[in-house]
Write a protein that binds this DNA or RNA. Sequence first.
RNA 1: GGGUAGUUAGCUCAGUUGGUAGAGCAUCGGCCUUACAAGCCGGGGGCCACAGGUUCAAGUCCUGUACUACCCACCA
Length: 896
Amino acid sequence: MAEEQNPGLPKAYEPEQVEARHRAAWEESGIFTSDPQDKAEAYSIVIPPPNVTGNLHMGHALNLTLQDILCRHQRQLGKQVLWVPGEDHAGIATQNVVERRLKQEGLTRRDLGREAFVERVWRWKEEYGDNIRRQIKAMGASVDWTRERFTLDEGLSRAVRRVFVQLYNEGLIYKGLYIVNWCCRCHTALADDEVDYAAQKTGLWLVRYPLEDDSGFLTVATTRPETMLGDTALAVHPEDERYRGLIGKKARLPLVGRLLPIIADTYVDRDFGTGALKVTPAHDHNDWRLGHKHQLEFVTVIDEDGRISEQGGVYAGLGLEEARAKIVADLESLGLLAEKRPYENSVGRCYRCSTLIEPRMSVQWFVATKTLAAKARQAVPERMRIFPSSWLKTYYNWLDNIRDWCISRQLWWGHRIPAWTCAACGGIAVLEDAPACCPRCGSDALTQDEDVLDTWFSSAIWPFSTLGWPEKTPELARFYPTSVLVTGFDILFFWVARMMMMGLHFMGETPFRHCYIHALVRDAQGKKMSKTEGNVIDPLEIIGRYGTDSLRFTLAAFAAMGRDIRLSEDRIEGYRHFMNKIWNAARFALIHLDSDSAPLPADPTRDATLALHHRWILHRLEDVKNLQKGALAEYRFNDAAAGLYKFVWNEFCDWFLELVKPDLAAPATDGKEQEKGAAKSVLCAVLREILILLHPFVPFITSEIWDSLPGRDREKELPLTPFPPPREVAAFAEDAGNMETVREVIGATRTMRAELNIQPSLRLSLLIRPADPEAHRLLEGQRVVIMALARLKNLDIDPQADVPAAAASGVVRGSEIIMPLRGVVDFAAERARLDKELLKLEKEYAAVAAKVANPAYLEKARPEVVARDQSRKAELEDSRNKLNALKAKFADWSLS
RNA sequence: GGGUAGUUAGCUCAGUUGGUAGAGCAUCGGCCUUACAAGCCGGGGGCCACAGGUUCAAGUCCUGUACUACCCACCA
């Protein structure tokens, strides 16, 4: 009968077509296009731009889901929301992809030349850049595509040049010599994070350096004997007794003959090797620092191809391995090699070609970070709050120890540094636009710097450049600072701290009010997902199998602050079941909802036709609404998700839908008419609000159901429907408690049946001896409900009724539940059940009784706690006594 | 070496001012009860890592220990 009225929703939720349909609808309607002229409070997020070469991974999926939940929720709260999408040009990664393709054609980027190569990368970007865009759409992200940006687009490139020039003019960008991680194959400096370190068995050589006065040797330990050609000092610890006399003296560098000062520095570890070390400032990061500190010479002995340079005398031109072998052999023949020990240390390799990294000095561009970092530090937490706050320390720590930022990269794909050198006068011109001639001498012999900027340079200005800076756009005025940045902790340093520095410097305000740092998505074993591990769970594959909403809800439910997410497919499957549950609950509701049912009055407490279970669900609904608002305001996504899950499944579906069935099934006659109408009104109102609450988490399925609601209840598309206003239901609090009692009574009978193996299809009689007149009234009023849900044929509620001996029994809040089972009851089973029940009661009673008997407790505990425990004790005592009496009666009978 | 987090049911994880431990999956028993078997009903399963301390009361606060994970630095 009901099936015939089915409005046509299929029996199981099928995400595929549903998602496609709503994605298309959202795109066409432009409902996520933001309006800067709108007067409503602004809420804005700029997307952490994914790499154009990238493929959506679980990290993105989580990142996008959380941002989308926030944006959709804020839209419901009436804010004018702007979510800016975009992509990052990702210098090295992208250049690499294209270089690999060239290689297949037997070409290198040098064969093409700079211009043609960059052109080629652009072509590639146009062709494949849409990939990531499609994937962002697949996640259901409600971004404003009309404001999409790319870090290398014209506007952002202009912003980058403006920033560079201004910082240069302010003296905050400078050009200088620096020791960098140099890849001898790629011929570029690599950032620290672009170097992969791995342990490798090298060796530790102990080399004797003859003292200048021929009074002996100073023996040092080194893992890299070949760099000794560039030594310019030896160092010992200032408090090392063994070497105290040598400090300030000189030693001769074997094979080269240069005199080296012996310096003292606490950096030296007395316990390592011989406690003395050689200092090669041009080829080691630490020695570089020592070199500056002690004003040593810098001698470069390794060239950019990784060979010994001219400075290396007879070793010039040798590869590093050959050089090492020859130098070791020469030392040995001179008797200057004291020892060679086996040793393992970590060596750096280029993250893309695995070539050994050579620390080398080269000319690079830098941002002086000291003053910028101080401001970025000071703005937190007053002007920018970090969630969870446990990251505060890390943030401070990094800014306190910051070094100048090397921003030049020897690549071709990226923002070319806007600096021109004049061949005629040697001057450097740093300008936003290419000058026609040298501003100093007028010569036209200008050449632009070959380097491009670190990708993070453009990322650092992303929050304001995307809003139109340096133009004074309405977007910039309206949406900066942005409301929140949502990102993973892995780029707290590279990105968040740098955005803070740039935002404060150029806009005078932090780039965002909040920074929410979410977890890393790991595999079920807790390992980081990586292609080489082969443990990657592909979001698109998951979406194909379980639907986007299932994935989104899973991620949100897992997103507890400060904890990594171990994603397992079981879990996603579990939440797919939830989607199906929502779907079917809606199907059920829609069968019964029609446009002629009356809407729920604005103040339901004035509606006398509402039954207990109606008032109960409305009361609970308000709880959930409050929970959701509170949780999302504090980025407790998992709390909001768990609250919704429990409410929808365990209360709305498991209880409320079952409770309204009798209402709805009632024939449309006289007295019953009203109840049926009330049930429909409540059902519709609750379903409608559930859809709104769920929508930020699971936008597709909720939109689909929404479109099937009676028209009156959906004046707007779901994404634009406001968060339901609060309903005044404080008066229903008592009803909610009473409903609990009814649920417990029903639960007790179900347990009895199940444990005594009574067929569910068997309709039973039940006797209830209520605890007091109040309970009597309550249960009598819920007669229909109890009979339906406990599957009864008779229900006798009578405090004076005799207890039949052949019965199963239990006690709920003082009311005795008796199930007469003549001829059906299993003595042993019932006796065991009663004993188990009594044991439980006894245990709890003992605990509470002991507590309440403690004078210290009575004196010091909060009065409401004491009162609660005392009434609990009384209740347990009462239950225990009644159950004992019932058991005695049962035992009498069964023995006879 | 410095720092951060974690240790709760077989597994993966919640647990917001301290007040008698929760979910999903798995498991066991019973059900096609007309929205849903991707379901319904019921059950079992936890010295909340260990040792101290504060408190009337500790999964929750403090100290220490062990193990695990991650971050930063370093590895001559």
